[in-house]
Design a protein around this nucleic acid. Structure first.
Length: 401
DNA sequence: AAGGCGTGGCT
DNA sequence: TAGCCAAGCCT
């Protein structure tokens, strides 16, 4: 069987058919596809809600990281109707730690809109999907192809890499995106009828645009990796222009982006008994809508003295204790170093305007980004069981052996 | 349209 | 270690 297929492949290749690429990809995918929680098994019905939820979570985020979050979200909100009725705060709290929190805000907005404007069913065309909050060109194409079998090609980072190698696209990203997209579209099975992106699988049900896209993504994740690709295992290895040249690791070419400048600031961990002073960040922007302890501004040339002057105003000025060391955190566009100051205030001390007291034992229910988990753990030190707070997520993912 | 926007794992 | 890198979107 395998031998026969190899022979056929070889014959087609000798005929010079680029049309073989979809066949090779699908054969490889059928044998090597990853088993992922959001993927329907062959013969199972695809759930657009799961495809959408996974695609949003997977934006700039690894499969390994997404796994537990996807399961938690699915258990709590099994369909888009349930999520459409959830509060933004509940979604932010469940999302805490996953990063890029605008995704959570858009998730909330998108679920509500699908419920209100689409009767609780995801639209099934790329154009209508593209109009939803948080759904850009890639995600719209991915959902259309994977969930609705539309003939369209989503192009993510994996596919950019695979395609740029396959065709030796020398132009650097992001300028090369249009060309890469056009080349990627040639990997789809030939359309039989109708306009691209509008044609669904016919009654024969044989159009597999979603599987071709997922094949390319799996290929990029497991074979055509950024470094040390395993070209001998690649179903397109004999067909790859970069491999023939021997410089496959140099693709995709990218224009370098400038590194962000270190910013400094201070964070203030105030205890009142077993409570900590927190506030909610502005709804948009960095860590938008998330919980934080009060902090100074974060600026590139800001010393400790300037930062300490921005401490929260409490009824009786507390004596600020600076913790040794600092909390460092790296955002996408700048590294951050926060000095941590602690203070203990009397019972019944009022929270300043816009702030509130939260029991330490309930911090885990807050929408705390990981930066703030680090800050609080640093501020409370070994005194408390707080350490369990910062490590609980990891323990859930990696149970002690 | 280039930069804002998190986090963890990898080499 | 200090970058890179990961199923991008929004403005």
């Amino acid at each position: 069987m395998a031998r026969a297929a190899t022979t056929i492949r070889h014959t087609h290749k000798m005929e010079g058919g680029d049309r073989d690429r979809p066949v090779l990809l699908l054969e490889w995918y059928d044998r090597n596809r990853r088993l992922l929680p959001w993927r329907a098994l062959p013969g199972e019905t695809v759930d657009p809600y799961r495809v959408w939820l996974s695609e949003i979570m997977l934006q700039q985020t690894t499969v390994k990281t997404v796994g537990p979050y996807f399961e938690k979200f699915l258990a709590r909100w099994p369909d888009v109707e349930a999520m459409g009725r959830a509060s933004l705060d509940d979604i932010l709290r469940m999302w805490a730690g996953l990063g890029y929190y605008s995704r959570a805000r858009n998730l909330h907005a998108c679920a509500a809109r699908v419920l209100r404007d689409h009767g609780g069913r995801f639209p099934d065309t790329e154009a209508d999907l593209r109009a939803l909050p948080g759904v850009g060109p890639y995600t719209a194409a991915a959902i259309a192809a994977i969930a609705f079998n539309r003939r369209t090609m989503p192009v993510d980072g994996n596919i950019e890499r695979v395609v740029s190698r396959l065709f030796t696209v020398d132009e650097p990203l992001p300028k090369a995106k249009p060309r890469i997209h056009a080349l990627a579209a040639t990997l789809l099975e030939p359309s039989r009828s109708g306009r691209d992106g509008e044609s669904r699988a016919g009654h024969d049900g044989k159009s597999r645009a979603g599987d071709i896209a997922q094949a390319l993504m799996d290929l990029g994740a497991t074979i055509c990796t950024p470094k040390k690709p395993s070209c001998v295992l690649c179903p397109l290895g004999d067909d790859c222009a970069a491999r023939a040249r021997g410089d496959q690791e140099t693709f995709p070419r990218k224009t370098p982006k400038k590194a962000g400048e270190l910013r400094r600031g201070a964070a203030f961990v105030v205890r009142r008994g077993n409570e900590v002073l927190v506030r909610t960040r502005p709804a948009k922007g960095l860590l938008g809508g998330m919980t934080e302890v009060p902090t100074s501004t974060w600026l590139a040339a800001q010393d400790d003295a300037a930062a300490l002057k921005q401490a929260p105003c409490l009824q009786s000025a507390p004596r600020w204790q600076r913790k040794a060391g600092a909390v460092t955190h790296v955002f996408t566009h700048f590294p951050l170093e926060l000095a941590v100051y602690t203070a203990i205030v009397a019972a019944r001390t009022a929270a300043p305007e816009g702030m509130r007291w939260v029991p330490i034992a309930r911090l885990n229910d807050e929408a705390l980004p990981n930066l703030m988990r680090k800050v609080i753990a640093h501020g409370l030190g070994d005194e408390m069981e707080i350490h369990a707070l910062a490590t609980r997520r990891k323990q859930q993912e990696d149970p002690p052996s």
